[in-house]
Design a binder for these strands. Sequence first.
DNA 1: GTCTATAGATTGATAGAC
DNA 2: GTCTATCAATCTATAGAC
Lengths: 215, 215
Amino acid sequence: MNKISVHQADTKERILDAAEYLFAMDGYRGTSLREITGRATVNLAAVNYHFGSKKILVEEVIKRRLLPLNNIRQQRLEQVKAVAQRKGKKPDIKSVLSAFIEPTLKFKEANPGAEHFFTFIGRSFTDPDTTVRDVFMRYIKPLFMLLHETACSSLPDHSEDIIFWRLHFTLGALFHTIHLCGHMKTEFINREVDMDADSLINLIVPYVTSGMKAK
Amino acid sequence: MNKISVHQADTKERILDAAEYLFAMDGYRGTSLREITGRATVNLAAVNYHFGSKKILVEEVIKRRLLPLNNIRQQRLEQVKAVAQRKGKKPDIKSVLSAFIEPTLKFKEANPGAEHFFTFIGRSFTDPDTTVRDVFMRYIKPLFMLLHETACSSLPDHSEDIIFWRLHFTLGALFHTIHLCGHMKTEFINREVDMDADSLINLIVPYVTSGMKAK
DNA sequence: GTCTATAGATTGATAGAC
DNA sequence: GTCTATCAATCTATAGAC
């Protein structure tokens, strides 16, 4: 690796890190290129030189973390399916939900530097900017379909429609929780919201499992 | 009422309606005063004349709908408490959750013109702008505390901490659902998401009731 | 590849005539 | 109360020297 490409990789990485942090804190629209390049200590023109536009930058920020995370969640879901099939049973709904939730909530601890992306995820679904929503949606949709399919085979007594909605309630609870941990420390004081991933998992999994099984 | 104040009320109301719609669609930061006054067919200077600033405008947009809604939810919650006390029983958790959820999901149908505020609510908690988040937080916090207190008396075998978290999972599911109904029509096609309030209530209440009771 | 300088557009807010 | 006109600040993006 020569000197130039080392420098480039370093600059791109620093821009991605700074953008990730600022997008998580202030949102896509609330963050200017000047703030990003200022935080990354690179020149203002560097974003457009290395990425082409702010729009492409945010797509790269999302892709960098979401592709690996989605790979893990997909593997876990397919593993749950395979184990159930080998035993000739239907998959346990708790295992199905855990396969999606655990990697998500552990992602922060597993990836040093990804703390802020975690916060960004929590806002993704409701971001006022269609660019951000569309990119997130594009990457999460195939995974949601796999999750839906697996949950349906796990709960054959419930209709696909009901499972569709209950999975969305589950995603809502999960994303709200993720956002809560990143932003609410000052707003709901007298209450510990800075928990480790395992404690959070132990709180949310029984709730959503019970919700999915209802009736 | 003289002619001037009629005109003023009309102008203010038209600005509030236009701002509510646009904030719901594109977010607070994504909406300019020019778009608002253009949609309201009033002069650009009217916002600053009648409200003073964009910040105060969004606060008024939120207050106009949220104060009446909170009054209803508070009455319903206190009614559930009073009935239980009269019978010497603890309140049923399903009634407690319904007291909060039903007025929220029926608000759209009960208030002509409030459809878009409904969408705005769904984004409130995660809005990247602190102005919006702070205003929402300020108005929802006392109600959340009442909800928490009532839920705790309903579920004496669960710790206050667990109930705190489970109520947040419930709020997450609720807000996500509200947002879904306003924005996802094109993004999750082949699936009906434009439901009436009663159908939605019948979907979400069993889920969150079961989740709250888990273990 | 990195820098300065700036174009070109848009923003929130205001001053002053009517 | 409503209007036009405009200020001052900010933004994304780019052109061109080094």
